[in-house]
Amino acid sequence: MSLDVNQLISNIKDAASTVINHDITEIRGFSERQLAALALQAKLIANAILAEEIDDDLRDYFLDSLEDMALNFAKTLRGLLAVTIEKVWNAVVGIIWSAIEACTGISLKIAS
């Protein structure tokens, strides 16, 4: 049995697209929640400063904190991206393995 390269390419594209579409939806939801919460925090800090409800020390703390949380947001996005890359990678390898198995009749053990 010969390997249909065009079919293989199509299968790889489908597998990658399925993973990416699913993950992007979740990542978009997370990003929107984070951006809304960070914007709310900025608004709360501004209001508290204007109303003199927090002292200078606490104001500086909350402003530094906002920066730390924005950095952690970026780190989390990067972490989510690593998981998505891993899933795409494994989906693609799985498709290639299956195609070779079907073509050669040789059983290739896929490490989990």
Binding site: G79, A82, V83, I85, E86, W89, N90, V92, V93, G94, I96, W97, I100, L108, I110, A111, S112
Partner: peptide
């Protein structure tokens, strides 16, 4: 290609 890619990987 398959050998090059080696096998399933885990990044996280």
């Amino acid at each position: 290609l398959a050998i090059l890619v080696s096998s399933c990987t885990q990044l996280a």
